[in-house]
Amino acid sequence: MTLFFEHESFPQRVRFGSGQAAAMLTDEIARLGASRVMVIAAPAESALAEDVTADLPVAHHHHEVVMHVPVETAARARATAARHEIDLLVSVGGGSTTGLAKAIALTSGLPIVAVPTTYAGSEATTVWGLTEGARKTTGSAARVLPRAVIYDATLTLSLPVPMSVASGLNALAHCVDSMWGPRADPIDRALAQEGIRALRIGLPQVTANPADLDGREHALYAAYLSARAFSSAGSGLHHKICHVLGGTFDLPHAQTHAIVLPYVLAYNAPAAPEAEQQIAAAFSATDALDGLQQLRKRLNAPTALREYGLNRSDIERAVDAIVPAVPVSNPRPVTADDLRRLLDAAYSGADPASFAYGRGNKR
């Protein structure tokens, strides 16, 4: 075996312990020397955020959190942080909450300590995203990576099962995209493979017994692995598609990822046999797509974009926006007609196996 690659890891402190969020967070704020903290949490999680930040020097609680981080929302949050002379941000919540903290850090350089309550994984990446009008812009900057992450599975216990499933499959999408992202390397693939394995174990436990901490811990552990792999490997075809769908048509982030994933896997896997084998092994299956679909069936995963607000008439507009963003490193070429077929299948919830080019030849 001959290996040749470059891999860059960003500095971040990670603390993991069920029931320990408040104590771990207090330690981290003291370690960073902050004295005027801005706590960011959506209204639905404001009580939870107040509990875990009760012992912090909080100067302001901020609750205006909007999916896909509109630029107007980010501007108001930045102004609020400046007005209160904030020296550190604490985000308590999912991807939208972490995303808002990143938007503030992008222009201010303020440090972030993230306390995730979903499996979105944004807390472990250098990726930021802002939406203006119907266009979502993403980028990567080291300054938006949280200095520390506090993982406490008890904070995910109130996450409903359908949202847990969608959020977990979003993490799984990070893993799959990390197998062939623009900068994917063997370390990224190893992290992604372990992330898939942990999600295969954890998510069925969460659906069978939502109060089971073991399943929640597996999913949270996997969310971190998937995000680290994705942050290094870069955004692949799946995420380019989903960013357009979310930003342009305001589709829910996690559900969109959960629905689109099997179609991208079906499209790319025949052209990436080594990655396909790694994904299959993580699912303990002989075929990557079969393994994913078996898991999705056990989880009663969402299946069709039409159920979440996409209209068939939107597909052509989406194709036009996605084509220029397709990574040149994708395992197989992608045409507008390919995207049209993929989105039409995801719109209606068609069987991904029937969509897979070359699937019959592979066997």
Rank of each mutant, 00 (worst) to 15 (best):
E8F: 11
Q12E: 14
R13V: 10
R15S: 10
T26M: 08
G33S: 01
G33T: 06
S35D: 05
M38C: 12
A54F: 01
D55A: 14
V58I: 09
V65F: 13
P70D: 13
R76T: 14
R78F: 09
R78C: 12
R83K: 14
L89H: 10
S91T: 11
G95T: 09
T98A: 10
G99P: 11
A103M: 15
I112W: 04
I112F: 04
V113F: 06
T118K: 09
T118Y: 10
G121F: 01
S122N: 14
T131F: 10
T131N: 14
S140W: 05
A148V: 06
Y151I: 03
T156A: 12
S158T: 12
P162D: 09
V165Y: 11
G168L: 08
N170M: 09
D177L: 00
S178T: 06
M179D: 07
W180Q: 03
P186M: 07
Q193D: 03
E194T: 08
I196C: 06
I196L: 07
A198M: 05
Q205K: 15
R216V: 02
H218R: 02
Y221F: 06
S231H: 04
S232V: 08
L237V: 00
H239I: 05
C242R: 07
V244F: 01
G246P: 10
G247L: 08
L251G: 05
A254G: 11
Q255V: 11
H257A: 09
A258S: 13
V260A: 05
V260M: 15
V260Y: 09
L261A: 10
Y263E: 02
V264L: 03
L265I: 07
A266L: 03
Y267G: 02
A269M: 11
E274D: 13
E274W: 05
Q278L: 15
I279L: 04
A281F: 02
F283R: 15
Q294E: 15
Q294A: 15
P302V: 15
I315G: 00
R317L: 12
A321P: 02
P331M: 07
P331Y: 07
V334Y: 01
S348Q: 01
Y357V: 15
R359A: 08
G360M: 10
